[in-house]
């Protein structure tokens, strides 16, 4: 299973920095994800892990550093201006790197099916009939085929998040970013979303998951990254990071989690 050493690197971050005003949120984060990796990014809140994830598809413009997708370099400096050429590249990057948000962010004026179809018809330029069929398949995949006609306001949080995952899958991204996908959910709804994410991991998809679910990091991730104060403190296999690490910050973070559970 652990063939990540031989699989090629698909997404790499090099020296990502980000400052908001005077505050330095990211101080040079490096990370490489190989094809099929499931990287769990853990860390206390305010550690910059969500900001880092958002820098990878430039929803947040990094102050410095590079994102390398399958050998193509996207430098922070490229996207500071309003150049058309770079905007086109950015859209391609975003199509290839999908993101699932903490608060789902479904579009309230579209049904579940409409939300999933949007990327198919507007990004992939698929004809509507074909897109509808494909969107149904995707909803089926996340167990919501019967809810295609529902509006987001008519769905539970867990169902909304699963529709959001289907929407992200629609453009067939090579890398999936999950930004605390279960943090906004009631505890009893967390399981249904995690099971969908786990199923995706089993398909061999490359995923970066910012999460507070230490159990998920331990059981599903192939790599665990621990961030604190805008930098990566520890990285390695789940076993190495979650059990063997001697870092006092990480130990303190993990012990707080155990107490909460």
């Amino acid at each position: 299973m652990k063939d990540s050493e031989v699989a090629p690197v698909i997404l790499e971050a090099r020296g990502i920095t980000k400052s908001f005003g005077g505050h330095e949120a990211l101080r040079g984060v490096d990370l490489a994800a190989h094809r099929g990796d499931v990287v769990a990014v853990i860390g206390p809140s305010g550690s910059g892990k969500s900001t880092f994830l958002r820098c990878l598809n430039f929803l947040e413009k990094p102050s410095g550093g590079q994102v390398i997708l399958d050998g193509e370099i996207f430098a922070a400096a490229d996207f500071s201006g309003r150049s058309h050429q770079h905007r086109g590249r950015l859209i391609k990057l975003r199509r290839r790197v999908g993101m699932v948000f903490q608060s789902f962010n479904l579009w309230p004026h579209r049904t579940a099916l409409g939300n999933v179809m949007e990327g198919l018809t507007q990004v992939l330029n698929m004809p509507a009939s074909e897109a509808k069929e494909r969107a149904q398949e995707l909803l089926n995949k996340v167990g919501l085929a019967s809810h295609a006609g529902h509006y987001p306001a008519q769905l539970s949080g867990g169902q909304q998040q699963r529709v959001a995952i289907a929407r992200t899958l629609a453009t067939e991204p090579e890398v999936l970013l999950f930004d605390e996908p279960t943090s906004a959910l009631d505890p009893e709804l967390v399981g249904e979303v995690l099971s969908v994410i786990q199923a995706l991991a089993r398909e061999g998809r490359t995923m970066l998951v910012v999460t507070h679910e230490i159990g998920f990091a331990r059981d599903v991730a192939t790599k665990v990254v621990f961030m604190a104060d805008g930098a990566v403190q520890e990285r390695g296999s789940p076993e190495d990071v979650l059990r063997q690490s001697q870092s006092p910050t990480l130990r303190a973070f993990l012990s707080r989690f155990r107490q909460e559970r």
Binding site: N57, R87, R94, P108, G119, A164, T168, T171
Partner: peptide, 17 residues
């Protein structure tokens, strides 16, 4: 909501769309 707009960018829609 900002997130609903970001979700559009995240799937690769152009600003105009």
């Amino acid at each position: 909501k900002k997130g609903q707009i970001e979700a559009g960018f995240a799937i690769g829609l152009t600003t105009r769309k």
